[in-house]
Design a protein around this nucleic acid. Structure first.
Lengths: 334, 334
DNA sequence: CTGTTAGCGCCTTCAT
DNA sequence: ATGAAGGCGCTAACAG
């Protein structure tokens, strides 16, 4: 593979000049520029990105950290980020933060060690303090679905409490009062926020929170199934269910089907959703849409801008709200 | 950030020695090795992968090319490859081949230019000849779901004709004779193979192929919906449908629901499926499972082995067959 | 066993 | 406008 040296010799100029036409830097006479260009494609010259990185101390690479590679949510996330990064002429590498602060730390360290120019982080376990510390030495990063006050200019956020609240509000508006909740692990902040929204909505309507109607799970289909079964077992009456993840909604419907409970005739259902899985269920399940794609896009753009200029110049909006997508799983009572 | 030079000075040895303990290469006295190690973590030294790449002429990176980033199929594919690559201590970068030979070529060139050590390719448009040419100069690569005779030792394959045939056979065994097919674009080889399997099964049972019962689409939900509508419009009777993609099966069910056609009471349905989307539909749709994950895993492993040793040492099996996952969308006739 | 000496391919002052 | 020279951080002979 031809190197800059070969091109230089061929064009009878110095390597410096070749470098100049390569990067459109400095002044080069039109005639020699053409000569160099000619030499370049005669030899099918392609600059070595590794060498460029070493010399310029920038890798043209951005690192993305997400919890896991599986599932439609992270798939869409990766796809969108890759899109943005790609059209900025850069490369994306991805690591998994898995399920602990320790592995998140390792994943981020790995990316930093790879000398990425910037980071896109979907952090779930690291504390605000630690993120602030990291920000001091790490390359620029953007936080996805996470708010840290001291880092507010690099946060792309979503109001889970409000979103969750408005989803449950739909149920309430339709006359439901016995509303169960298939929640995530309440030890985790996002899950707690979604639960909080549920609780807020009930409270606003003077409905007492009954923890027998709340189950905890890990957002999977199985968890939804188990949760629904558990709800049925307690014997407490309810006319509607709020599922905190689309997978849980699917699992819930599995359980209901087994027990011959019809949606929405017997029980109404509303769910969180990010990849429209709810439209594959029968009936199509009404959901509160979490805009992963849009958020990922804005996050990527924000980072790209930051890498181009100095300082974070914020795009249009960096805060998102949920969007209700009403379908056919909620029945009006009375 | 500390460099090898800093460590060398601190440990009072040469850079070469530091390099030796870093790579466990050559001989180093235990005492000096310890001194160097100590210096390393005192200074929190992390070798610069970029410099290592330049010097060693290997990037520890493998490139994956897929058509698109979206969808569960490619999501699972990426996830699995990433997994394998990751546990081999390497990094994965991904590019999209999109929908033309030209862009596939560009995507591969890009990866090669990035100096990846190996490639994992899900090629759809490039010809066998071109792939063979590429093989002559490119770093080692493995082909996913593609068979090229001259490159047979680096192909992970799936028999679409046979798989498709056996799916349709299920319908036939259940007494169906009027079987429609929601096919992909028949100009594309994989789609043609799936269609071929359908045709083969019919022929074996002495059923004439009726192209009015075959619709072409692009594997999307919309295509499935449109195809089903079209089938209904022609007025030709059929009692079963074979959907060549899970998304099409979903679209088909959408159309059927609109027309009050019940599955499986009125029409039976069987589908191709790779990410179990069929289990989200009601009723759960019987499907022929395409093992993306397993194939991606084997492909990754094959490549990792190749990169370690010289020559392709083939793993257990590199050819896959479909697996029938019978569920509740097929009714026995008569 | 350890150090010296060259690069790897490119970028970047500093001269000219 | 162009060239010479040094350096990015590390590896890899080759000596000793």
């Amino acid at each position: 593979m031809a190197t800059i040296k070969d091109v230089a010799e061929r064009a009878k100029v110095s390597r410096a000049t070749v470098s100049r036409v390569l990067n459109n830097t400095g002044q080069v006479t039109e005639s020699t520029r053409l000569r160099v260009k000619a030499a370049m494609d005669e030899m099918k010259y392609r600059p070595n990105p590794v060498a460029q990185s070493l010399a310029s101390n920038t890798t043209n690479t951005i690192g993305l950290m997400i919890s896991s590679f599986r599932g439609g949510f992270f798939g869409d996330l990766m796809a969108e980020v890759q899109q943005v990064v790609d059209s900025a002429g850069k490369v994306m590498i991805v690591t998994q933060g898995k399920h602990s602060a320790e592995s998140e730390r390792a994943a981020i360290d790995y990316l930093i060690n790879m000398r990425v120019d910037g980071l896109l982080l979907h952090v779930r376990y690291l504390s605000d303090e630690e993120l602030i510390t990291i920000a001091e030495t790490a390359p620029p990063f953007v936080l996805l679905d996470r708010y840290v006050d001291a880092l507010s200019d690099r946060c792309i956020t979503f109001d889970h409490i409000k979103a969750s609240d408005s989803a449950v509000e739909v149920l309430l508006k339709n006359g439901h009062t016995g509303i169960a909740c298939l929640a995530g692990k309440l030890t985790k902040s996002k899950a707690k926020e979604r639960f909080q929204g549920y609780a807020n909505a009930l409270t606003r309507h003077d409905i007492a929170l009954d923890m027998d109607l709340v189950t905890e799970g890990n957002y999977t289909r199985e968890a939804g199934y188990d949760g629904a079964k558990q709800l049925l077992l307690t014997g407490k009456p309810f006319t509607a269910v709020y599922a905190c993840s689309e997978e849980m909604a699917a699992g819930c419907m599995d359980a209901f089907r087994e027990s011959n409970i019809r949606v929405p005739e017997d029980v109404s259902l509303i769910s969180y959703d990010s990849v429209d899985l709810c439209t594959f269920l029968t009936p199509h399940v009404s959901a509160l849409h979490f805009p992963v794609t849009e958020m990922a896009s804005v996050a990527g753009t924000l980072l790209m801008n930051r890498l181009r200029e100095e300082g974070f110049s914020r795009p249009e909006h960096t805060h998102f709200d949920g969007e209700l997508r009403l379908r056919h799983s909620v029945r009006k009572l009375k």
